Amino acid sequence: MAGASKNSRTTVATQKFICPDCGGEIELKTLFENGKLKNQAVCSKCKRTERRPKDFK
């Protein structure tokens, strides 16, 4: 019984995050600092930065 491969079953889902203060879109950025990769969420309008989009609430 041949099934579909694991990679073919995954769905691509993009999620938009909205800043509760200004209504701008939150973008996820990856920064390379001190030899480590750090993820940051940045609002495109008010330039507020947090560690992840959930922290904007």
Rank of each mutant, 00 (worst) to 15 (best):
T10M: 14
T10Y: 14
T10L: 15
T10F: 13
T10N: 13
T11P: 05
T11W: 13
T11H: 14
T11D: 14
V12F: 15
A13G: 08
A13Q: 13
A13C: 10
T14H: 13
T14Q: 14
T14E: 15
Q15R: 12
Q15W: 10
Q15A: 11
K16A: 12
K16H: 11
K16P: 03
K16C: 07
K16N: 14
K16G: 08
K16M: 11
K16D: 15
K16Q: 14
F17A: 14
F17L: 12
F17Q: 13
F17K: 11
I18P: 01
I18R: 09
I18Y: 07
I18L: 07
I18F: 05
C19H: 03
C19R: 01
C19K: 02
C19S: 04
C19D: 08
P20V: 02
P20T: 03
P20C: 05
D21E: 09
C22I: 02
C22K: 00
C22H: 02
C22R: 00
C22S: 00
C22V: 02
G23I: 06
G23W: 00
G24W: 00
G24Y: 00
G24D: 03
G24L: 01
G24Q: 03
G24H: 01
G24S: 01
E25V: 10
I26F: 00
I26Y: 00
E27N: 09
E27W: 05
L28K: 09
L28G: 09
L28I: 08
L28C: 06
K29S: 10
K29V: 10
T30F: 13
T30R: 10
L31G: 08
L31T: 06
L31A: 14
L31N: 11
L31S: 13
F32Q: 15
F32A: 15
F32T: 13
E33D: 12
E33Q: 14
E33A: 12
N34V: 10
N34S: 15
N34I: 06
N34D: 15
N34A: 15
G35K: 08
G35P: 04
G35V: 08
L37M: 13
L37P: 08
K38G: 06
K38I: 11
K38L: 14
K38T: 09
N39F: 09
N39V: 11
N39C: 09
N39W: 06
Q40S: 11
Q40T: 10
Q40M: 14
Q40R: 13
Q40C: 14
A41E: 10
A41I: 04
A41N: 07
A41T: 07
V42R: 09
V42K: 10
V42L: 09
C43A: 01
C43F: 02
C43V: 02
S44D: 03
S44V: 11
S44T: 10
S44M: 08
K45A: 06
K45E: 09
K45N: 10
K45T: 07
K45F: 11
C46A: 01
C46S: 00
C46P: 03
C46L: 01
C46R: 01
K47M: 04
K47A: 03
R48G: 00
R48V: 00
R48A: 03
R48K: 08
T49E: 07
T49M: 05
T49G: 04
T49R: 05
T49Y: 03
E50R: 03
R51D: 05
R51Q: 01
R51K: 03
R52Q: 02
R52N: 00
R52D: 01
R52L: 03
R52F: 08
P53M: 01
P53K: 02
P53D: 02
K54G: 06
K54V: 08
K54Y: 07
